[in-house]
Amino acid sequence: MELKTVQTRHVPVRYFEGGTGPDLVYLHGAGGVTAEDPFLAALAAKHHVYAPLIPGYGDSEEAPTIRDMLDFTLHTWDVIEALGLKDPILVGHSMGGMIAAEMAAVAPNDVSRLALICPAGLWDDDHPIADIFSLLPFEMPQILFHDAVAGAAMLTAGRNVEDPNFLQTYLVNNARQLGMAGRILFPIPERGLVDRLYRIKAKTVIVWGDSDRLTPPFYAHGFKKGIAGSVLVSIPEAGHMVIVEKTPAVVEAIGRLG
């Protein structure tokens, strides 16, 4: 994947681009995305993938003027416009799924194929979504992965926790990335999407890991019910990070969009 920059109204946006095939825009979750992400590579096998970073993620510039859900939604439309894309397959994971669903709801005639992978955006008091903002690093794998041990190894790979600068770098990245994500996810990741889902016209596939302990599979039914004609693909032995735990199954599900 190649890291590039495209200018938008708010800020220059960094994005990964690679692969050949139908255009596909991938919106990452609150943890971000890197060039080495195996899910991007798998998508790029059959698609021309564009994966824009939310401002503040990776090395991208922050955007103080993107504050609320509508700002995030319109900004991401601005990115698609700036990339010169028309009706790409729109795929979003977690927070990215929430943004993708909002985009499809505000502009239903501009999105014909939508894949939502354990998206955020709905809330039910009896099925609380874990508070990722107050989780400590060591608590993350248990929440994010079906296999917490393998997940922990994945999260710490390539990081030198003995490095004295590690903590500061970690804190800065966290502040930039989760600080931005908090604008639509804190303290409760719900901004009224439930009342807008009905507007979505896209052919929609909803993908969920059966052992998702961050956004419980309960919510899959909320999305399925809210989006007419949508299809739910449940994936066994996969948690919230189903995109890395069961990459081929997720890619196969997206393939159903044609």
Partner: peptide, 15 residues
């Protein structure tokens, strides 16, 4: 986990 919600402090302060 409650001491410092990400984004509460500015980057300048952390640095």
């Amino acid at each position: 986990g409650f001491a410092d919600a990400p984004g509460y402090r500015t980057i300048k302060t952390i640095q």
